[in-house]
C-alpha cells in the first residue's frame, strides 16, 4: 500500500511554470465514464465496473491523464452525459437496455450493455452506438450447438475457476479486492468499463469517436483471443464456457485468430 500512496502523491498535482511567472495547473485530460445502475444495486455489476475503473485510472495516471467512473441511477443518465461522460455502461434488463439504448442513439453516446443473470430477453437490432458485452441467448445457443453437448450444460461468459490466458490473475485480483468470486456479471461489467476506458485512453475524447473506436479496436478480456464487437450486430465475439461439473472453453465461430 505504501507504493500506491507514493504513486498518488507523485501524480496528484502536476504543476507548470508559465511565461508570465504564475504557477498554474497543467492542462490534463479528464476522461469520464458513467455506469447506470438501478436503485436495487447489483453488487457484481458495480464491483466488476469498479475494478476496471481503478485499473484504468491507474493506467491513465501513468499516461498523464485522469479517468473516472461515475455511477448514477437511470434518471441521471442525461445529467451524466451533460457532465461529459464519454460512454454509458448499463442495461441489466431488457427495459433498462431499451431506455438507455434510445438515449444513446438520440445523443450519440456509446452504450455498453451487460446482462443480469437469468436475463433471457432476445437480441435487439443493430444500433450505431450500442455495444453488447454479455452474450445473448442466441450467442449461447450457437455456442451450445458448437459444443454438441448435453442439454444440462450451462453456457456462461466467465467463471471464477478459469485459469488460462491470465484469467487466474484477474479472478485473483477481483477476489482480493472484494472478497468474493468473479461471477459472469462482474466480468461483463469489468469488460465493458475496460473496453470503454481503453478506447478513451487511446485517444477518443468525444462520444462519437469512442463509438467509432469500439467498433474497430480489439480488446484483451483475459480469454486468450483478441475480442471485437461484431460489425453486424455489435455483439462481443468471445469464447464462452460450458459448465457441467467440469469447465470447457468454446471458441467463437468466426474469429480472425
Amino acid at each position: 500500500m505504501t507504493t500506491r500512496r507514493r504513486f498518488l502523491q507523485l501524480t496528484a498535482t502536476a504543476l507548470a511554470w508559465t511565461g508570465s511567472g504564475r504557477l498554474v495547473r497543467a492542462e490534463t485530460r479528464h476522461l469520464l465514464l458513467a455506469q447506470i445502475l438501478p436503485a436495487t444495486q447489483s453488487t457484481a455489476a458495480s464491483q466488476g465496473a469498479l475494478l476496471a475503473a481503478e485499473e484504468a485510472a491507474r493506467t491513465a495516471e501513468l499516461l498523464g491523464t485522469h479517468l473516472e467512473l461515475r455511477v448514477g441511477q437511470p434518471g441521471e443518465a442525461t445529467a451524466l452525459i451533460d457532465q461529459g461522460a464519454l460512454a454509458l455502461i448499463g442495461g441489466l434488463d431488457a427495459s433498462a437496455r431499451a431506455a438507455l439504448a434510445k438515449l444513446a442513439e438520440a445523443l450519440g453516446v456509446p452504450l455498453l450493455t451487460t446482462r443480469a443473470p437469468g436475463d433471457t430477453s432476445p437480441d435487439e437490432p443493430l444500433r450505431e452506438h450500442v455495444f453488447h458485452v454479455a452474450s445473448s441467448p442466441r450467442d449461447r445457443r450457437e455456442a451450445l450447438a458448437r459444443w454438441k453437448g448435453q442439454e444440462s450444460v450451462e453456457i456462461v461468459d466467465w467463471h471464477p475457476s478459469l485459469k488460462r490466458f491470465g484469467a487466474e490473475q484477474l479472478n485473483q485480483r477481483y477476489k482480493e479486492r472484494f472478497g468474493t468470486a468473479m461471477e459472469p456479471l462482474a466480468w461483463t461489467s469489468w469488460m465493458a468499463v475496460k473496453a470503454a476506458a481503453e478506447a478513451a485512453l487511446r485517444g477518443a475524447d468525444t462520444p462519437a469517436e469512442l463509438s467509432r473506436r469500439l467498433g474497430t479496436l480489439g480488446f484483451d478480456g483475459h480469454k486468450g483471443l483478441r475480442l471485437r464487437f461484431r460489425p453486424s450486430d455489435h455483439h462481443l465475439q468471445q469464447p464462452l464456457y460450458a459448465v457441467s461439473g467440469v469447465l470447457a472453453e468454446i471458441a467463437p465461430e468466426e474469429n480472425d485468430e
Binding site: E55, A56, G166
Partner: peptide, 29 residues
C-alpha cells in the same frame, strides 16, 4: 519499488544502460 502498469511482465535494458522498459499486460503500457 516503482509503480508501473497492472500485471507487469517484460523487462528490457537499453544497450547504453540508461533505460529500462517494463511492459504491463493488463494496462497495455
Amino acid at each position: 519499488t516503482l509503480v508501473v502498469g497492472v500485471e507487469p511482465e517484460g523487462v528490457a535494458l537499453s544497450p547504453d544502460g540508461r533505460w529500462i522498459y517494463v511492459t504491463a499486460e493488463t494496462s497495455n503500457t
